[in-house]
């Protein structure tokens, strides 16, 4: 391990990169976990809510279920957008520094 690498490891910039990365990831993971387990608990303890009709022969359960599928995909999209823009930007800056030294 050369000195340059150690400097990067100790830099505030790098530490912030890691903590931001996990803050974003864990926040998104928590959203997904809450949606899914919330849905399961709702089914387990309050089926009538989901069985309520919101249109002619359309239950609330159908848009909710399909909504969860779409939300799972959108959440991965949010992460990709964030990572491509913010995370990769910061990574490239730090990498440029490694190369310069």
């Amino acid at each position: 391990m050369d000195k340059n690498h150690q400097e990067i490891l100790d830099s505030a910039e790098f530490k912030k990169l890691i903590s931001t990365r996990w803050a974003v990831s864990l926040a998104l993971a928590t959203v997904m976990l809450s949606i899914y387990f919330g849905y399961l608990l709702l089914i387990a303890f309050n089926k009538p809510v989901l069985a309520s009709m919101i249109g002619h022969n359309l239950t609330l359960a159908i848009p909710v279920g399909l909504g969860i599928i779409i939300s799972a995909w959108l959440l991965t999209g949010v992460y990709v957008l964030w990572a491509n823009d913010k995370y990769d930007g910061a990574v490239n800056e730090i990498k440029a520094k490694i190369r310069k030294n």
Binding site: F37, L40, L41, I43, A44, F45, K47, L50, A51, M53, G55, H56, N57, L58, T59, L60, A61, I62
Partner: peptide
């Protein structure tokens, strides 16, 4: 698709459009 769901409900009752017996024990589901 809504017409399809309607046809299913007309034929087999509107229960088919909402959660049935699959999750009866919440611990099992979790």
């Amino acid at each position: 698709p809504l017409e399809l769901f309607s046809a299913a409900a007309d034929q087999y009752g509107s229960e088919v459009l909402s959660p049935g017996s699959y999750i009866s024990n919440p611990w099992d589901a979790l």
